[in-house]
C-alpha cells in the first residue's frame, strides 16, 4: 500500500489514536475534547476517514448477516412448549 498523501498535520492526535478510538467516537462515547479532536483529524486525514467509515460499515453490516438457522426439530419442540405454556384467556365471572 502507498503512503497516504493526505496525512494530516494535526499534532493533537495521531492516526494510531484515532484508530483505537473509532468505535467510541462513532457512538459519541469519547469525551467532548476527544470527539472534537477526532472530528478535526478526520476532516484532514483520508486514511483515518476511510478507517472510521469502514468500522461504521462493519457495525451496520453485522446486524444484517445471516446467522445459524433453527433446526426444524427444535422449532417444533419450542412451538409445542409455547402452545402448552400459553396463558389461558381470562374467564368471565
Amino acid at each position: 500500500m502507498a503512503l497516504n498523501p493526505a496525512q494530516p498535520s494535526v499534532p493533537d492526535i495521531t492516526c494510531r489514536e484515532v484508530a483505537e478510538w473509532a468505535s467510541a467516537y462513532l457512538d459519541a462515547h469519547a469525551d467532548d475534547a476527544t470527539q472534537v479532536r477526532m472530528a478535526l483529524h478526520l476532516a484532514a486525514c483520508a486514511g483515518c476517514e476511510a478507517y472510521v467509515s469502514q468500522i461504521a460499515a462493519v457495525r451496520d453490516l453485522l446486524g444484517r448477516l445471516p446467522g445459524p438457522a433453527v433446526e426444524p426439530t427444535l422449532r417444533d419442540r419450542l412451538r409445542q412448549a409455547f402452545s402448552a405454556n400459553r396463558t389461558p384467556p381470562p374467564t368471565k365471572m
Binding site: 497516504n4 495521531t14 489514536e17 486514511g47 460499515a57
Partner: peptide
Amino acid sequence: WAGHWAFPPQPWDEQTP
C-alpha cells in the same frame, strides 16, 4: 510521521456493503 498511517486502509465505495 510517527503514529500516522504507513499503510492506510484503501477506501470502500458506497456500494461495498
